[in-house]
Write a protein that binds this DNA or RNA. Structure first.
Lengths: 335, 335
DNA sequence: ATCCTTGTTGCAACCGATTACATTATGCCT
DNA sequence: AGGCATAATGTAATCGGTTGCAACAAGGAT
């Protein structure tokens, strides 16, 4: 008998008012008189009514959801960003939808920018198809990575400067041959960070030869492979310090170096990037660039919400500060 | 002029047919003649029509979304599970909504079990309010953790047995005083794992005194604190080997022990739980119980989809195998 | 006493698709 | 030629709330 969920109409009938009144009692309480409001609430209580969000959203032309497009969900780097995003979206009454962009064609990705799918988009992937901001598509905020031509808000760090700081630290320690393990090709972060390295070395009047550049892809394994290359290079010409574009790679690098009987920082100083959870606790604790991930997520979400409220301009960068955390994986150049 | 998005009606008008026909051309192509289908598609092309999902979902009484309830999104342990879930849900045409349960009251959590919010629920938190399966709520699958009385499908590992295997390994190495760092109180995993330890020790005729149990909460820091306690205990009566209920805690434990000049596994053997990404590459590489996280996510999603299709019974456990990975953090008892 | 303002409430259109049912056209059978 | 099954399409109700507009009552100002 009570198999069907009660609808607004049922509540209205029981309370002896129209559906319009019930609707108003719920979403615009001040528009209905004290008495009716009470009657309506009693009826809601009695029927166990719960509103159908799909219907409301259809009428309101909104979905109540924000999509976060992540390059690789399995990468723990993103979990804290998502956590930051969720911490803002939840209280604001929005759902967080998460989608992994790996293996998704441009068509599928653009689908997420449909107003009937989500009210907004937080893009963590620098390879998002640029058409995203066509009229009739939802507002977009980019976080961490960004799409070069895309006129959407960005929340990020200054990767170029951060890389410069990392290299500067190694220079301060007396290192003169400094290597760099890059991120994947065609990635804005890769470009920015390698640019920062190049700039800083040039500023110091030091060379940056091709042999000092190791192609990586942010993954632990690519860091190990970079170490493999480094190990084969002649001891007296290879880098005495290496800056890697991710902590995961730094981990792999250190592991491989140690496996070959060499020591960090004894034989090579290592600086990572990101400051992911565990790397403060490995041996040796990793010197790295701290990136405020949760904060990036929070701010990205907040900027998006501001746009949805029409409060904020749709572009402009928010640059968050990074911090060089000096731990035990770097040491003065041994003479 | 073309500011509004075209609707079904616009396509119909342009194609010279009714909205019903357009709708059918899209969702039931065989019901319309070849000619009309072509005309409709031409009109769709011409107008740039894209369907409004909210409207379709309202009519279909579905949302196209599955919610994953995560105890703590920032914990990288869950990112791979989510990745597994997403890899199944995406291709099946479902959106993945992610919600963090920390700080959410029972009311809010139950809200996620509303049919107008999501079509199904994957619960990764053992403290979900039990009422979830009231009639009129959506199907639920539990993954990793589970709610004791809840008659919903479960995808998990045998935590008790896994803990037994971990302890067995330490026994095989000759250890007789074995400690355990637990998860948080009121957690089913904590209970199951400590139970497994107790069983295995009893089986071996060994005691399991209170001093050998350290209260943790899965976090890195609680592992460090446990090490602090262990370090204060008398050398000749404290455990010579410790099994920790999470890798994060094992990491913290090892770090703290090393910081005090002791060695792992020289002074204490350590076994973790989970096999998270990096711990194979720390020094020493951590011996641990591998948990197939992506697979857990995939299977949970598949069981839920099967339920949504009405293909599968709504309860019953799926138990996945674990694996003891012996690395370098455990060694035979020094005599 | 009349007009106007303010506060409540109902009617009915509306959001944008889907689909049961009705209608029309076509082809085949006897 | 009449009857009937079949295919293709249109009409309009429907999913479940929201909201512009109108109606009406009560109180105040003139």
């Amino acid at each position: 008998m009570k198999h069907d969920r009660p609808k607004l109409r049922d509540v209205a009938r029981l309370a002896g008012v129209s559906t319009a009144t019930v609707s108003r009692a719920l979403s615009n309480p001040d528009m209905v008189s004290e008495d009716t409001r009470a009657a309506v609430h009693a009826a809601i209580e009695a029927t166990g009514y719960r509103m159908n969000l799909a219907a409301r959203n259809l009428r309101h032309q909104r979905t109540g959801g924000i999509v976060a497009l992540v390059p690789n969900l399995a990468n723990p780097f993103f979990s804290q960003i998502l956590s930051g995003i969720a911490s803002v979206l939840g209280p604001a009454g929005y759902n967080l939808l998460v989608a992994d962009t790996t293996g998704a064609g441009p068509d599928l990705l653009l689908d997420y920018a449909e107003p009937s799918r989500a009210d907004g988009l937080i893009v963590l992937d620098g390879n998002f198809p640029m058409v995203a901001l066509e009229p009739g598509r939802v507002p977009v905020v980019q976080a961490c990575e960004w799409v070069p031509g895309l006129p959407a808000a960005r929340v990020k760090i200054d990767n170029r400067a951060a890389a410069g700081v990392a290299v500067g630290h190694l220079l301060d320690l007396g290192h003169r041959r400094i290597g760099h393990v890059t991120g994947p090709a065609n990635n804005v972060l890769t470009e920015a960070r390698i640019g920062g390295v190049r700039d800083r070395l040039a500023e110091a009047g030091l060379p940056f030869p091709d042999e000092a550049v190791y192609q990586g892809d942010f993954s632990l394994d690519s860091g190990r492979q970079a170490a493999g290359q480094w190990l084969t290079q002649p001891r007296d010409s290879r880098p005495t310090a290496v800056f890697l574009a991710s902590d995961a790679m730094a981990c792999g690098f250190i592991g491989e170096v140690q496996r070959h009987g060499l020591s960090v920082p004894g034989d090579v100083s290592v600086v990572g990037f990101d400051d992911i959870e565990l790397i403060a606790h490995i041996a040796p604790p990793l010197t790295t660039i701290h990136q405020p991930r949760a904060e990036i997520g929070r701010l990205a979400a907040e900027r998006l919400l501001a746009q949805l409220r029409g409060e904020s301009q749709a572009d402009g960068d928010t640059i968050l500060p990074v911090e060089l955390l000096i731990r035990a994986s770097t040491a003065p150049l041994a003479i």
